[in-house]
Structure formats: C-alpha cells, structure tokens
C-alpha cells in the first residue's frame, strides 16, 4: 500500500482515479491545483501523480503551471517519485523538468499500466 497524492483539475477524472487506486489498496489524497499539491506535500507521500495543465492566472489551461510545480517540488529538495499523467505529455519534451520526474504516462492510461508503474516506483512493503 502506497500513500499517493494525485493532482488534476479534472474533478471527474480525479475521482475515478482515486476509486481505482483505492480499489488496489492504496491510500489516496487529491489536489486540484499546484498550490493544493504544495500545501499537502509536507504530509509525506510515497508518490505524486500529477497532470501538467492547470489554469493560470488568466483562467487559461497552461502546461507551465505543471512544469513550475515540478520545479518547486524539486527545489524544495523533495525526492518523492513523480508520475506525470497527461493527455499532452509532449509538453515535457525538451524541458528540464523531464529529468525531474520518474515517469511520463499518456491519458487515457489503462488501470493495469498505472498500477504497474506505481508498483515499480513504490515497491510494496
């Protein structure tokens, strides 16, 4: 069982992913924006699963919000494994943040692939 924080501004997608992960025995918390992730980070999770595109100040979806989040997490010297789960993983191509995450997965991701990736990054105790 891993303690996982999932972040996405898609409420329905987030809720479905939570059900799936909890069904597999994981303990799951959710955040809907980067500031929510940063607020919850100190609770010590085993794994982060984050989207890249969140709303910016102008209310427009912007992958730089997710890239900034990854940078902030790493600059805080937090080494928690990160899976980027995005429909547009190419947003990470050529970006330095690509080296800061452990895995990039494309939506829609089959449940078994996501669970296998989690098992790989957070070995079951």
């Amino acid at each position: 069982m891993a303690r996982i924080l999932i972040a996405d501004d898609d409420m329905a997608g987030l809720a479905m992913r939570r059900l799936m992960l909890e069904g597999a025995g994981h303990q799951v918390a959710m955040a809907m924006d980067p500031s929510g992730v940063l607020r919850q980070m100190e609770q010590g999770y085993d794994l982060l699963i984050i989207d890249l595109r969140f709303l910016n100040r102008a209310g427009i979806a912007d992958c730089r919000e997710g890239l900034n989040l990854i940078r902030k997490i790493r600059h805080a010297e937090c080494e928690v494994p990160i899976i980027v789960l995005s429909g547009w993983a190419a947003d990470l191509d050529g970006e330095p943040e690509l080296q800061m995450v452990q895995k990039v997965m494309l939506k829609p991701v089959p449940a078994r692939d996501l669970l296998a990736a989690i098992d790989q990054l957070v070995p079951r105790k």
């Binding site: 501004d9 409420m11 329905a12 997608g13 709303l55 102008a58 209310g59 979806a61 829609p108």
Partner: peptide, 30 residues
Amino acid sequence: RLAASARFRTQWFASQILSATALDQVWVFD
C-alpha cells in the same frame, strides 16, 4: 464523457465551470 475519456486523449479544465454560465464570453482580456 466517460467513453471519450477512456478512448481518446482528453482534457477537462476547471474553467469550464464559468463557461457553463456563458459569462466567460465577456471576460475578454484581463
């Protein structure tokens, strides 16, 4: 919605809550 999200690469955004009122049309620039 469920079928599209399961089959294609899709994205839902929180800004759609405002779009569902149509008021966002007059929020043009800032």
